[in-house]
Design a protein around this nucleic acid. Structure first.
Lengths: 206, 206
DNA sequence: GAATACATCCACCGAATGGTGGAGCCCTGA
DNA sequence: TCAGGGCTCCACCATTCGGTGGATGTATTC
C-alpha cells in the first residue's frame, strides 16, 4: 500500500486528488496539508511514501518544502504537481530533490501511474516538462541567462540605470552594458524594456 | 434544484468540485467542460442555472466565455472561480457579466453558499476581491492606466521604440512620450524598463 | 594543455529616451 | 455650462542607451 500525503493550498484541489485516489486499491491518502511547513510535518509523522506537492503556496513554497523534506524524511518521494510548466520552475524543483513533475491538467489515470512510479523510485515528468528539460540540457547556452545576467536584468527591471546597476554590483558600467548586450542576444530583443518583458514571460523576474 | 455546469481545464479541479457538490441535496452538477467554448455549449444545452467558470483556460478564456454565455443563455449565472485575484482579472470578468468572483482557496462550504446565492441572482465576491474593487472604485485615478496607456505599454514591452509605437497606433511620437510620462507618474518609475516590469507585476501585460 | 564560458573592462558614436512646460480638442458628468 | 479627464501634439535639451569591436583574467572542461 502506497501512503500518500497531499500538500496543496486549495481545498478544492485537495478534494479532487483525494477523490482520484479513493478509487485506487494500492494507494491510500493518509494526510493533507495546506502549506509547505505543514506538509513536512504530516509527511514525516505519517511516514509517507509519496508526497504530492504544489509549488505555489503561501508561506513555505513547494521547492523549499521539497528540499526540507529530503532532509527530514529521505524515504519520502516528492512528486511536484503544479499549474505552471515554465522553465524556471522545473529545474529548482528537481534540484531540490523532487522525483517527478506533473501538471494539473494531468488526467486522474496518469496521476495514479505517476504516484506508483514515484513510489518505486522512478522519475516521472510531464511530457511538456521533459521537453523543456531536454532543451535546457542539450543547449544550456541559447536562451538561458547566467546568474550574473539575471541579476543585472532584475535590477534593470527595478528601475536602475546602467550606472546604478554597476554600483549596486560593485563593477563598472561597461560590464553592465556587456551583460545587457548578451541578454539582448539571448532573448532576441533590442532594448532593456523588452528584455524585462521577456524576463517576466520566462518567469525569471519577480 | 440548482443545475450547475463546471468549466475548468484541470480534471483534478473538476473532480474536486464535483465531489464538493455531490454531498449537496439542492445542487446537481449536470455537466463539465474543459474550455470556454465547450462550456458555453454545455451550459446552453443543459440549461444550467449556474456556471462555475475558470478564468485561465486554453482556447477561449473565462472572460470571453462569460460574455458569450450572457448572450446565448442570459438566464445562466456565471460564477468566476480562479486562482488569481489580481486587479486586472476582476473588473473584466465583472464587466463581462459574471455575477460573482471566488478564489480557489475557498472552502467547500463557502463555495456552496456562493452557488446558492448566484442561483438566487445575488452577487458574491471573495473578500480580497471586494477590497480590490472598492479600492478601484474609490479612486479610479492613481495607479490605474487608461486603455491607451496600457496599449502603449504593451507595445513597449514587445520591443517597440517610441517611433514604432507611434506608427503602430497612427499617432505622433510626441503623444507616445506623453503617454509614457503619465505611465511613469502613475507607476512611480523613471524609465520604460521598470514601467514594463511594473506592468507585469500588476498583471496588465502579457 | 587547449578550448570554452563567464565576468570584467575600454572607447567611440549615433540614436533613443526622459524631463519640462506647455497647448488644443473632445467627451462626460456635475 | 463648466470642470475634469483623456488623447493628441509641440519644442528644447541633457542624459542615457544600444552597437560595435575589441581586451583580459579565471575557472572549468575536454
Amino acid at each position: 500500500m502506497i501512503r500518500l500525503v497531499i500538500v496543496d493550498d486549495h481545498p478544492i484541489v485537495r478534494g479532487g486528488l483525494r477523490d482520484t485516489f479513493a478509487g485506487s486499491d494500492d494507494i491510500v491518502v493518509v494526510g493533507e496539508a495546506a502549506d509547505g511547513a505543514e506538509g513536512i510535518s504530516r509527511a514525516t509523522l505519517l511516514s509517507a511514501d509519496v508526497v504530492l506537492m504544489d509549488l505555489r503556496m503561501p508561506g513555505m513554497d513547494g521547492v523549499a518544502a521539497t528540499a526540507a523534506l529530503r532532509e527530514h524524511s529521505p524515504s519520502a518521494r516528492v512528486l511536484i504537481l503544479t499549474t505552471f510548466d515554465s522553465e524556471s520552475d522545473v529545474l529548482p524543483a528537481i534540484e531540490a530533490g523532487a522525483i517527478g513533475y506533473l501538471l494539473k491538467d494531468a488526467l486522474p489515470d496518469e496521476l495514479m501511474r505517476a504516484v506508483r512510479a514515484a513510489a518505486r523510485g522512478e522519475s516521472v515528468l510531464a511530457p511538456s516538462v521533459t521537453q523543456q528539460l531536454l532543451g535546457q540540457i542539450r543547449k544550456p547556452g541559447p536562451g538561458a541567462l547566467t546568474d550574473r545576467e539575471r541579476e543585472v536584468l532584475q535590477l534593470v527591471a527595478n528601475g536602475s540605470s546602467n550606472r546604478e546597476v554597476a554600483s549596486a554590483l560593485f563593477i563598472g558600467e561597461a560590464s553592465i552594458k556587456t551583460h545587457l548586450q548578451h541578454i539582448y542576444d539571448k532573448f532576441g530583443v533590442r532594448d532593456r524594456a523588452s528584455a524585462v518583458a521577456e524576463g517576466y514571460r520566462r518567469r525569471l523576474l519577480t
